[in-house]
Design a protein around this nucleic acid. Structure first.
Lengths: 235, 235, 235, 235
DNA sequence: GATGAATGAGGATTCATTCAT
DNA sequence: AATGAATGAATCCTCATTCAT
């Protein structure tokens, strides 16, 4: 926890390194105290820097919070896209989205709570870069849903926005207790349940032709051919 | 510039009336400013009472907020139960729950925002009377779900808690923009869509087509493998 | 000097008395430190009140300064009018104005310096109540000048505004050193000298000697020319 | 939002040139913002130099201000003396002083305001080089007055210091509005009015012997002689 | 019961100046 | 000489709550 206030003496670090130090310290202190209760001087101490220096890099305490959360969000978006790479099938992709989102929350409950309570309720949220990132984040899901509808996996009268809200809102609601340090959740299980609920809720009635089925039939045909050949050879 | 406050004359009112006046004033001022930004003196002025007197009735500014929200919640619970009276059928009952919840939000967005941003994120939420009321509120839905499962309308492997979270979380997420005075929503439409999504997601009668298919495919795969082996062995 | 921070315990005073206490304390502290360097907590201590209470009466530290100066100005205006009562004669009245102004400065150099350096240079001075009071203050002189011109004591081509500036600006310039605690001045003597200078500078009866002489010389020149011509013609 | 400063490349300039650049930049920035509100980094940027480098040349932000004002003052003193060159007559010389001072103010209101509000009110003004320059500046007028008294143009019971204060204080007071960007003034007109007021206020009653009069009388004597001659001739 | 004067903690922020590189 | 990262002091103000009257 907060480092003793030793005499810090003019240590010159490259800008990048310093900013990372500060951000790291801020992440720690904000996580611990929340935004309002987080004293800037504690962040400074934790970063091994003077209080004033923070304002050389960040205009605001709030700017600092947003930076911390942006970095986090960036990582989440990357993870998201990486995980989705090569995954086929609407259902599987939806499952990944849910699973990954739950996993992110599980891993960073403090940042998550910070985002929910400090950023998203703020009146200026919509003019925030974090809002844009959130849109990019959810856009991944929206794309999946659109494709799913185009391909006939999802009923065309489905409202993608509502599905998005059900997923992210449902998750948020479900993890509330965990975020408040009450209770826990198993993201494997929850992801399974939730993706099933959602997919069943929006799935089109007739199943689409499946590639694995095609392949299987092909193999069966080949086997049958061979058996046919054998029986005629042996005959 | 050093403005003297107006004089108010002593008027003695019955305790009940006073409390209702204060609560009404508080509801107004909180709705307008939010909790933190709401000055107690404005509430006092609005209620026609002195600042200090408020503390004769309410221990806290926050107590006042909670009282306001409790009154609101009480009404919501009543409406809920009244609406549900005589409604039969799991799906219909779920629809009512959703519809009613959306309607309440539509009608009192300010109180709703207050609840979301001030009460539910507070660390002491779980020891709050509002938490209990919220449980009672959601218990209505939980009862419906339990009955639905017992009667075979809902798959028995459904997690009622998750359904609850999907419903209330999904709604909350969906109305966020409206609560922030950005955009609007039509609760008839949304209720329709959401209840369908949820009910389809958990309904018992319609088996998940894909998972059955998966099992069939699996069995076919095994048969094919065996055939395959046999056909090549025999060569 | 600043009273020791004893335990102050809820002493309830009438609003008027409190405000006077604070104002008195502020006057003292501002005089000692100037505006910027005056700590509000010292004012509070001096007034025997808590820091926060000051803001119940005055919106600002600056509001407090202005109040102090307004009170001072009010007294000055009263003194002014009282002194002028029954004084006849333009010159005598001008003398009073000068004398009284010098006297006020002599008696309250600190407030005077405060006014010069903090109020009058501020960009919002012209929307200030102190500006209005200053106008009322100088209007007394303007009235004297107008009457003087109407009665023929003062040349009608005199600019009253310029006379006002010469008087108040001249005084201000003259007392600068005194205000900075360097040097002194005798307001009887200075008033005598200045009022004489000003009055002679604008008096109607004593024509400017030089310009008359110029005219005389011109006439003589013309006469001489004629004589000259005649005397040489006649030759 | 954590904007990285642009990189500047090392360029080595002769000391003189650098100092002039900085001074010019400072003049601009001080004029625009006033002293306190002028950020040193803006001066540095304007001068195309780093913040730290400024302190290689000037010990202080205030030193920089003083340097700017000294340069300005130097020019004013030169103008003053140049304008006065060859001007004869106390009244004419006083008029020049007033006219020139008004003109300087008109041309550099920003520097003038800076001087009035930042330098002259400072407690250390009297140990300042600018104070010395100001004395030199006013000494020109003092010399004129002394000579005027010696030559009998000015009453010998006049206080030169007071006249100086009336002139410079009167001017300062008169142009206040202009310096605050409210209103304007015509220095030709004001100079005329003020020099007349002042000179009339201090002029000696008996006009001094004038050279043109001498000449005229001489001519008259000659004419009279001639006429005398004629009349005796003709007689 | 009602008043309203009095309390007092609590913290982000600026920016001229320094000094290691 | 030039840089620019680092320093750190210094303080006004709010407003929920208390308590003497």
């Amino acid at each position: 926890m907060s480092v003793a206030p030793e005499k810090r003496s003019f240590v010159r670090l490259p800008r990048e390194k310093r900013m990372r130090d500060i951000e790291k310290a801020a992440r720690m202190v904000f996580s611990q105290h929340g935004f309002d209760a987080a004293p800037v001087n504690e962040i400074a101490a934790e970063a091994g820097i003077s209080e004033g220096s923070i304002y050389k890099f960040y205009t605001n305490k709030r700017d600092l919070l947003h930076t911390v959360l942006r970095t986090w969000y960036l990582g989440m978006i990357d993870d998201f896209k990486a995980k989705l790479e090569g995954i086929e099938g609407t259902r599987a992709r939806i499952h990944i989205v849910i699973w990954q989102h739950l996993k992110s929350i599980k891993e960073s409950p403090d940042l998550c709570r910070l985002f929910y309570s400090e950023v998203r309720n703020a009146p200026d949220y919509y003019s925030t870069e974090l809002y844009d990132m959130n849109r990019e984040y959810t856009r991944v899901l929206m794309g999946i849903l659109a494709k799913g509808m185009a391909e006939g996996d999802i009923r065309t009268d489905t409202s993608p926005a509502l599905v998005r809200d059900v997923i992210f809102g449902g998750i948020e609601h479900h993890v509330t207790a965990y975020l408040m340090n009450r209770g826990d959740f198993d993201y494997e299980v929850v992801a399974q349940q939730l993706s099933r609920l959602v997919f069943c809720g929006i799935a089109a009635d007739k199943p689409e032709p499946r590639q694995d089925l095609d392949r299987l039939i092909e193999r069966l045909e080949q086997v049958t051919d061979r058996l046919d050949q054998k029986s005629s050879e042996g005959g």
